[in-house]
Each structure stands twice: as structure tokens, then as C-alpha cells.
């Protein structure tokens, strides 16, 4: 199978379209016959990361790769960066704006949720931007039996 590869722009504060990357990735995984449980894990991770770019950054991109034995998504944004990564990974810690909170976000659960569902997570951040790579390994039993 040729790797599936997609790139998406994610705009700052574009809450109405937040979830597009997650939704299209979910559809691609469904078409490959992966189980609902596997798809849910990836969908949660992608959605949370996508929301983070929308509500916390000046905008960025998502790169989605699906290969035979893994799904990898890289999010890169243009800043302002995460001041304290350790705090950001603490469940319940939030720096979300009131705009984000009014829209149901900002519970401080985004990164902890991503960490919980993914097999690998690499997070780097500076004032120039944040890089987040999340990877999910596809095992044989992640394919729904025909």
C-alpha cells in the first residue's frame, strides 16, 4: 500500500472548522478497515492537537501519514509556544482564553488526552512555534475482521 499523506492548514481561532483534520483522518482509517477502537484513539489525539493549534497558536499545519503499520501526525505552528511543557502536560492545567472556554475548550485535558491515546508523542516548543508528533502503531488485530 502506498502511504497516505495529507497536509492541512489550521487557522488561528477558526473554531467553526476545528475538527476537519480529525474528521478526514477518521474517514481514511475507516476506509482501510481499521477497528472502531483504534480509530477512536487516533481521532481523539488528532482532534485535541488540532484544537490546540486553533485556540493556542497563531496558526499552523498538520501533516498526516498513514502507512501499513503506523499512523503519524505532525502538527507545527507559528508560535507563541508553550511556556512550561511540564505544566501543559498536567491534567487540568490550562492557559486557554475565555473565547476558547466559552466554546467548550480549555479544560486542560488536551495534551494529557493526547499522551494517553498515542503510542509515541514528541513535543518541542519555543517562542517561534510548537512541534508535536504523535504516532500510533497499527497491530494486526487493529484491522476489523472481514
Amino acid at each position: 500500500m502506498a502511504p497516505y499523506s495529507r497536509e492541512y492548514d489550521i487557522k488561528r481561532n477558526d473554531i467553526a472548522n476545528a475538527g476537519t483534520v480529525a474528521s478526514l483522518t477518521k474517514r481514511a482509517l475507516k476506509n482501510l478497515g481499521l477497528t472502531g477502537e483504534f480509530i477512536k484513539q487516533v481521532t481523539i489525539g488528532v482532534y485535541e492537537a488540532e484544537i490546540n493549534v486553533v485556540i493556542h497558536s497563531y496558526g499552523g499545519q498538520a501533516h498526516v501519514t498513514i502507512d501499513n503499520d503506523f499512523v503519524e501526525i505532525i502538527f507545527e505552528d507559528k508560535g507563541p509556544g508553550i511556556a512550561n511543557i511540564e505544566q501543559a502536560l498536567t491534567a487540568g492545567f490550562s492557559t486557554a482564553s475565555s473565547y476558547a472556554i466559552e466554546n467548550g475548550f480549555g479544560a486542560g485535558m488536551g495534551l494529557p488526552n493526547i499522551q494517553a491515546v498515542s503510542d509515541e508523542m514528541d513535543l518541542q516548543s519555543s517562542e517561534d512555534g510548537t512541534y508535536l508528533r504523535i504516532k500510533f502503531y497499527i497491530e494486526e488485530d487493529d484491522y476489523a475482521s472481514a
Binding site: I44, Y47, E48, I51, G104, F105, A107, G108, M109, N113
Partner: peptide, 9 residues
């Protein structure tokens, strides 16, 4: 819940 991350997770 009224917190979407809690719903999501």
C-alpha cells in the same frame, strides 16, 4: 459534560 475534552476522552 460541558467540557469537550472530557467528552472526547
Amino acid at each position: 459534560s460541558d467540557l469537550l475534552s472530557h467528552v472526547m476522552g
